[in-house]
Design a protein around this nucleic acid. Structure first.
Lengths: 261, 261
DNA sequence: CGGTGCGGCTTACGGTGTAAGCCATACTTC
DNA sequence: GAAGTATGGCTTACACCGTAAGCCGCACCG
């Protein structure tokens, strides 16, 4: 028989720790860097040892996604019920999601992209627990089934689109990043690797590249034929994410409210 | 000196053909299946030969993205100017984007996820040419810079979120699928593969880990503890994508119209 | 004390992206 | 024509990946 589970194997690994280490690595160096060997190395262990706790790398990535979404549980601003009304509830929830999305820009694509178990489990709210929470809360607030569904889908798709855009814009064509995930059942599939783009980072906030950059052989910019882009480049590069998120969310909630009658 | 470029090397490869073949493979078997060797094989050629036309697999995937977005050019419904007004223009454009997204569900995540050259080039409108088209068209319609930018971002983020959700829901945890992309600079990185999972989540919200780790052998989802999800499951699974896309788009355009004054 | 199984380790394999170099062919230029 | 040269294939080789299979010490069980 196995030992009592409450006993902690001194310095032992465990599934959660593995996932947490993987997430650290992803945050630091991109999904592609989260190699079984790298994760193991960081834990002072051999790669194959991880397989005692995880069945496959893909499953591990799923665990990582769960871990990220679970940050909602500890988010002090997020409420589990609509004690202040559904609008407050959804606002807090949305902000919580944004918080974890921005906290893990390299990992967020995993959350948005990884195929789900059911077609109606959609990102970025990927845990059944939270989906249940949201649906039940709205229903308790007097939403009809129809209204619940509409809200659920609009809410998800707004967050998905906005946050993917924002985190993508913030990430840029950086250094690391990358992914390796498949989805095949019976046959294995490979991953890819990424060369360096040795781009340059730009401020992203203030004076952005006046140089729009279409990759020019010289590495120089090709803006002559895109006058409007060129003219608006500075404004396009401006960071107004906070404000725009708030506005977009407000607008979404207005639409939700509008269909309540 | 090289031959005149207008001469076609009989049965020769070329960058476009390589990208096109990669896209075929992705459509058929998922991103992970688009191995350099597999692509080459389909072209009756050795893997290394591809490198005469493409610098790296990552760059090839960028080409694939370009190829997909370029389908807008041939879309008969899409207009390049707002001869029927901006609302018609944006509607057609949005429908065109949706069309290519649904035409390549396995490849669409690439479009949404691949880091761009500049922070303001955001998916799913990833070509400078189309961004210029949209910005210029709106400006020509009398939009102020502010309004152009607002519209640009809202439009993109709506499409991004909605289409990623829809294509994700349609793809499910299917068969193939997968990816391989990185972003590392000096060192290469791998990919991974994906098995099929039939997990389920635990409450995570209320009570602590009752450690309900019941993996349903039947592949069925455990919904008992998620009553609302269970009750709404059928409706959640319903396919009302067309209708919802239309409604969402309409709502977006209304918001755009509203800020025009 | 003898068993038992957990959780590490070692080894090995097939697959990946790609660096480096080879060589036939077809074009350009006298 | 002949000579020169770049093009676009092929071959070989490497480092690194995910992971199958099996080994073994050690903590615990009766």
């Amino acid at each position: 028989m196995p030992a009592r589970e409450d006993r902690n194997r001194a310095k032992g690994l465990n599934r959660d720790l593995v996932a947490r280490t993987a997430l650290d690595l992803i945050d630091a160096e991109g999904v592609g860097a989260a190699t079984m060997r790298a994760i193991a190395g960081r834990l002072g262990v051999e790669a194959m040892s991880l397989y005692k706790h995880v069945r496959t790398r893909d499953e591990l990535l799923d665990d990582v996604v769960e871990l990220i979404v679970a940050e909602l549980d500890d988010d002090p601003e997020v409420r589990r019920d609509a004690s202040e009304g559904w609008r407050d509830y959804l606002t807090r929830l949305a902000r919580g999601v944004r918080r974890y999305a921005l906290a893990h820009p390299h990992a967020f694509p995993l959350v948005t992209t990884r195929p789900a178990e059911a077609p109606w489990i959609n990102p970025p709210l990927r845990s059944l627990a939270w989906i249940e929470s949201m649906l039940a809360t709205l229903a308790a607030e007097g939403f009809s089934d129809e209204q619940v569904l509409f809200t659920y889908r609009s809410f998800n798709s707004f967050l998905l689109g906005y946050l993917l855009m924002e985190s993508g814009a913030r990430t840029l064509r950086d250094p690391q990043d990358g992914d390796g995930s498949m989805g095949s059942s019976d046959e294995p599939v490979p991953g890819g690797l990424t060369p360096t783009r040795t781009d340059e980072e730009q401020d992203a906030v203030a004076e952005a590249t006046t140089t729009a950059e279409q990759i020019d052989p010289q590495g120089d910019i090709e803006v002559a034929e895109f006058p409007t882009v060129h003219r608006l480049a500075d404004r396009l590069a401006e960071d107004r994410f906070d404000e725009e998120f708030q506005r977009g969310l407000e607008r979404l909630l207005d639409a939700v409210a509008a269909q309540l009658d």
